[in-house]
Amino acid sequence: MRTAAVVGTGLIGTSAALALTGRGLTVHLEDADPDAARTAASLGAGTTEPAEGPVDLAIIAVPPALVGKVLADCQRRGLARCYTDVASVKAGPRSEIAALGCDTVHYIGGHPMAGRERSGPLAARADIFEGRPWVLTPTADTDTETLNAVLELVALCGSVPIVMDAEAHDRAVALVSHAPQLLSSLVAARLEKADETAIRLSGQGVRDVTRIAASNPAMWVDILSANAGAVADVLAEVAVDLGETVTALRALQAEEDAERRGGAAGIEAVMRRGNTGQARIPGKHGAPPTRYETVAVVLGDQPGELGRLFGEVGAAGVNIEDVDIEHSTGQQVGFVQLSVAPGAVRPLTATLRASGWSVRD
């Protein structure tokens, strides 16, 4: 593949364009908003000049409801030899594409499982897809040339291809992406009118849960509208669990010991189910989840402090598997939680303390 077109220069479209231009491809950019395309071009994502002939691959990076219409227009213009899209819902667009009579031999649906809570070309990153799954939903008439072209796209972006049925994909993303987005927003909505004193007590837990609540509402309305039934099914199951949990919490306030014990058992049961579910999430590099231990270090808010800490951990021969930073409210310090192999905790703690770092027990 030497040439590509990206139609829609939002976060995902521009990120794909940046990844491809970084690999030496010529990328032509289109957007209904010319300013967005020019912004993407100014970032090095490609050119807004039209291609002189059909490009090797066109990437349709528009909301799910527009995929069919845009694909039909691109095929009418002969924009590319092969086509794909990156919409986060697959069944609805596939039905519309069939209804519009589009060429499905040279088209395959796609969905890179990557994103950010920010949107638009300025939020784009060439490395956003690296190591992430990229779902492909071929139909019975998708030809080999098209499949190979999109597999090359996935490889150039550093992603891992996963072939799925369109309906199965939509049920899966409802569970692992769309419903969590709404649940994060629901928790964050509780903070809208909360007392300022309560807000100041916010710690890393509420930050983790509400991080994606900063996402663009208009973009998510488009996504959820295309997958509303599957998301509603997930949330209906959550609502049942939530109702039972509320009942269990009320029981903890009861006067009778038996009722309180029943409430405690209900809370423990749902939390154990959560433990089991969380443990199924793939770990580093997609491998089975590994249990790491945490070393918590107090870090001053000065330039270079984090780099100095990482340097000393590296000099100690310890690999950092993951890192979280919790900022202290009202103080110029933070707490860096280094996830390391269990056997590294004791020697790393001793080394850091010997170097003057404050390590929390």
Score class of each variant (00 low, 15 high):
E326K: 04
I60C: 13
S184L: 03
D195K: 08
S88W: 06
A248F: 11
V187C: 11
A218E: 15
E167F: 03
L20K: 07
V67M: 05
A36T: 07
Q75S: 08
G311N: 10
N275Q: 15
R207E: 12
F129V: 10
V209S: 12
A36E: 04
Q253C: 13
V70Y: 00
Q278S: 05
A213I: 10
G205K: 03
E259L: 13
T290I: 08
D222C: 07
R250W: 12
E145L: 07
R132F: 03
G203Q: 14
A41L: 09
A354S: 12
H111T: 07
S119Y: 07
Q332V: 01
G53H: 11
G10R: 00
M271R: 15
I60L: 15
D56M: 04
V163C: 05
V313I: 05
R116D: 03
V270G: 13
T14K: 10
G307K: 05
A65D: 12
V150Y: 01
S159Q: 05
F335G: 03
R250N: 15
P93F: 07
T142M: 09
R2V: 07
R94Q: 14
V295H: 09
P63K: 10
P133N: 11
H285E: 06
D103K: 09
G78N: 07
V67G: 00
V176H: 10
D170R: 02
E49D: 10
T197R: 09
A354I: 01
I223S: 02
S358K: 12
G92A: 14
V62F: 06
H28C: 05
G68H: 10
E49L: 09
G286I: 00
A218V: 13
G307Q: 14
P133H: 11
A51Y: 03
T14M: 06
